[in-house]
């Protein structure tokens, strides 16, 4: 029996689609209900639907054997996991964003800058580790773009997909922190104890991802 933790929402749907293409029966997972555990004894698969930020936790503690989760969550949570596969969907960028005027190096001129973000760990790692500077991090829980507009912070660190919300509010991407996409993560013990089930699954998913990527290149 394998327990798979999925990030509730679009990512879960895409993951299920991919698993089906790879030959796994996911009827149980597609059941429309409020159940949090979706189990099919015939296929030996059990799905749990969790908040994205909790998926790495379930997998690290071994409550789930594997999980599908965005790279942003993995970076923020910093869990001890095997990160075995880039699924290629859910693509976006983790960026430093702020008023257009800060582009072209002007960001670095602001001392002791305040940064609003939902991702305090990623923000700290980027400014301290990469840019070698101290910043004041302001943890926010949503509509992060408000912070620089209203003067709570100079810049924000957030996920940018199309950038529309930024542009419509007079903000722009200033620097890219990391490329984000959905990843398959595996518990370190499960990888060893249940390798007969997990390794073939990873291989089948890898094949499907390759086919998907080829199609993208063609079109």
């Amino acid at each position: 029996m394998l327990t798979i933790a999925l990030s509730k929402g679009r990512l879960a749907e895409q993951a299920i689609e991919l698993l089906e293409k790879a030959g796994y029966d996911c009827t149980a997972a597609k059941e429309k209900s409020r159940k949090l555990i979706l189990e099919d004894p015939n296929t030996g698969l059990r799905f749990i639907l969790a908040k994205p930020a909790d998926v790495p936790t379930y997998v690290e503690y071994g409550a789930a054997d594997l999980g599908v989760v965005g790279k942003d969550t993995l970076l923020e949570e910093g869990r001890q996991l095997y990160e075995v596969l880039d699924l290629g969907f859910g693509r976006c960028k983790m960026c430093v964003a702020g008023p257009k005027e800060l582009k072209d190096g002007k960001l670095d001129k602001i001392p002791n800058k305040r940064v609003g973000t939902k991702y305090p760990n990623i923000t700290r790692a980027y400014f301290e580790g990469v840019k070698k500077e101290s910043v004041e991090i302001i943890k926010l829980n949503g509509s992060v773009e408000l912070a620089p507009l209203i003067g709570l912070s100079e810049v924000i660190v957030d996920i940018v997909e199309s950038g529309r919300t930024l542009f419509e509010n007079g903000l722009d991407v200033i620097e890219t922190v990391a490329d984000i996409s959905a990843r398959v993560v595996v518990n370190r013990v499960s990888m060893n104890m249940k390798s007969d089930e997990i390794r073939p699954m990873i291989e089948k998913l890898r094949e499907q991802v390759a086919i998907m990527n080829d199609k993208k290149e063609e079109s």
């Binding site: 518990n187 013990v189 499960s190 104890m193």
Partner: peptide, 28 residues
């Protein structure tokens, strides 16, 4: 089993390294 991708902290380990696992706990 052999896991050649198992390295450990090299400030500390200088040769063989091993971990033991069982079911129902997520840590070695």
């Amino acid at each position: 089993t052999v896991d050649l991708g198992l390295f450990g902290n090299e400030d500390y380990y200088t040769g063989v390294i091993f971990k033991g696992y069982t079911y129902e706990v997520g840590f070695p």
